[in-house]
Nucleic acid binder design. Structure first.
Length: 588
DNA sequence: TTAGGGTTAG
């Protein structure tokens, strides 16, 4: 390919003007073909247009742009800038930065467009060191006078948490500032939860736009949970846009105020998929998966196309409810509507299938994943563990080791839980001991909890007690509770009483704890103990927590509450129970 | 001679 200046003829070339209007992949393919046939592609300007069109198009991946890019012998700055921008858009800041380094190596001159892009890439990959080097380069080449570049620098420092460096640039009076400079700086403070600083700048700034307001609402609502100030901002905002409504609703949802969130959601002038996602996720997190699913169904009915995020919320609601049919329905819906099943959605599906007990589906999904992150592995290991497939969980853990996949503390909670459910005491102990030495992960309270559970279930009660008493941090009620349960299984009254005593000291002796203790006494025929506990519970007016369960009935979710006979006529219910009991007896 | 920087959800 040769480099040639664009002739007047080329500028007017209908193919190139058409390219700017192209949005679909097939349109771009067609023009690409014609550019090759006519050899117009050998012109750098024409190739730039093609790259720009493919980067802008939603239908094409960066792979396609890369394909065109690699065929250009001497890419100019424009082409490189467009590629860097494309990489940022598809959240691949590392490739963006690599291309910048490549430009340096090849001697492609950076211009005032290159720096804002590549600085954003540095901010996104938290590459402070790289950002600093570029800052030096910018100063050396005199680009710090460019407002876009300066704002790029401020943004980069803010993203990397260096608000002080950013502020120095911001406060430098010898250069002009604009609304974006102010907003970038405020955003930096908001990210770090420094709402006082953010507020001061907000009050000082000469003009504000919807960005400024939305950031403050988000900062107060989500970052620091100060819902009162967030609402004040929202109420004072001159012209609310969709984003500010979403931010405010998200703020409420974040602090668990779902009633207030729902009220705003109902009153908002227009909704998008994000508004629905916030509510679905909010309900799912707030322990109301039933309502999360209702909203998801409503969203589909009302014609808002769910995206990946809203689907993940709904899938996790299904997982909480064990609503396998609806989970499958969402899975099919996503495939039918060509919504990409990325690693997050796939992981949510694996988790859902696991929690619903469909292990084969979960395995199939996991095995077919082209990309896995640490969460995907964790979900699989935990799922196998709690479903009693401890050995398989250990195999996966070994596979992770072999593939040198990054592990985190949840991985160890998963694998230790798996060992404990499967009675793999020696394996569990070995893994626990290797946490610090081999993986540099400091065992937390939860890991000690797993260890106590592992030993307790295996009947090694003294060793479990020893762990609790010698561990480096203060044991919590879950640990003593776990030991108490183990004492019940292995009939150890003395240690059970010690555990109960410790739980009482921690003021965590709720009704559940006493019910277990009472059962232990009863199983040993210690009726004096049973009476003592019963009296204690009555004196303290302790109530047993109401038992609840949910099942799927004809595509809906039904909740059953212990003692509430309103669902079925009593006779019918008794009939079902007795036939189920018979089936179970026959099965055994 | 094509383009640019600052908000929202896992």
């Amino acid at each position: 390919m040769t480099r040639s200046p664009p002739s007047k003829l080329l500028l007017k070339n209908p193919l190139l003007s058409l390219l700017q209007k192209c949005r679909t992949a097939s349109q771009i393919f067609q023009i690409h073909g014609q550019l090759i046939t006519t050899n117009i592609i050998s012109n750098t300007f024409a190739a730039s247009r093609l790259i720009a069109a493919s980067v802008v198009s939603d239908a094409l991946t960066m792979d396609y742009a890369e394909l065109v890019f690699t065929q250009i012998e001497q890419p100019n700055s424009f082409i490189c800038n467009t590629m860097i921008k494309g990489y940022i858009e598809v959240s691949n800041p590392h490739r963006a930065f690599n291309l910048y380094s490549w430009m340096q190596k090849k001697g492609v001159l950076m211009d005032n467009y290159t720096y804002p892009f590549v600085l954003k890439a540095c901010g996104l990959m938290l590459g402070l060191q790289e950002g600093r080097e570029i800052h030096g380069e910018v100063v050396k080449r005199g680009f710090e006078l460019d407002l876009f570049v300066r704002n790029g620098l401020i943004g980069m420092y803010c993203r990397c948490g260096e608000t002080i460096c950013a502020r120095t640039l911001f406060d430098d009076g010898s250069h002009q500032k604009d609304l974006v400079s102010w907003n970038s700086m405020i955003h930096g403070y908001v990210r770090g939860g420094e709402m006082g600083e953010a507020q001061m700048l907000f009050d000082e700034m000469p003009e504000r736009d919807v960005f400024s307001w939305a950031m403050m609402i988000d900062g107060y609502g989500k970052k620091v949970g100060d819902i009162v100030h967030a609402r004040e901002m929202f109420d004072n905002m001159p012209q609310r846009d969709l984003v500010s409504w979403n931010s405010m609703i998200d703020g409420y949802s974040n602090v668990g105020e779902m009633v207030a969130a729902r009220r705003l959601f109902a009153n908002m002038p227009e909704k998008n998929a994000i508004s629905w996602s916030i509510m679905i996720d909010g309900y799912a997190r707030d322990g109301n998966p039933k309502e999360a699913l209702n909203l998801f169904r409503q969203m589909v009915r009302q014609g808002t196309k769910p995206d990946k995020v809203s689907a993940v919320g709904a899938i996790s609601a299904c997982a909480q409810l064990g609503a396998i049919d609806q989970g499958k329905w969402i899975h099919i819906y996503l495939s039918k509507n060509r919504i990409t099943l990325d690693v997050v959605v796939q992981t949510a599906l694996v988790d859902m299938y696991m929690k619903c007990g469909s292990l084969d589906e979960a395995r199939k999904m996991f095995n077919n994943m082209s990309e896995r992150n640490v969460i995907s592995w964790n979900v699989m290991i935990v799922g196998l563990g709690v479903n009693g497939f401890g050995e398989e969980a250990l195999e996966l853990f070994a596979q992770m080791e072999m593939e040198e996949t990054l592990m985190d503390d949840l991985t160890f909670i998963g694998v230790l839980t798996a060992c404990s459910h499967a009675g793999l005491v020696i394996e569990g102990l070995q893994i626990f001991n290797r946490m610090r030495s081999d993986y540099r992960i400091e065992p937390k309270l939860e890991h000690y909890g797993c260890l106590v559970d592992l030993l307790g279930r295996a009947g090694k009660l003294d060793e479990a007690q020893n762990v609790i008493e010698t561990m480096p941090m203060k044991p919590n009620s879950a640990l003593w509770g776990s030991l108490l349960s183990a004492c019940r299984t292995h009939r150890n009254i003395t240690l059970a009483e010690v555990s109960l005593h410790r739980l009482a000291e921690l003021k965590e002796d709720d009704s559940g704890v006493y019910v277990i203790m009472s059962n232990i006494y009863a199983e040993e025929g210690r009726w004096d103990g049973v009476l003592w506990i019963r009296k204690l519970m009555t004196d303290r007016r302790m109530m047993k927590e109401t038992g609840r369960s949910v099942i799927e009935v004809d595509g809906g979710v039904e909740e059953f509450i212990n003692g509430d006979g309103s669902h079925f006529p009593r006779q019918e219910r008794d009939l079902v129970i007795s036939s189920l009991s018979k089936m179970m007896v026959t099965a055994i």
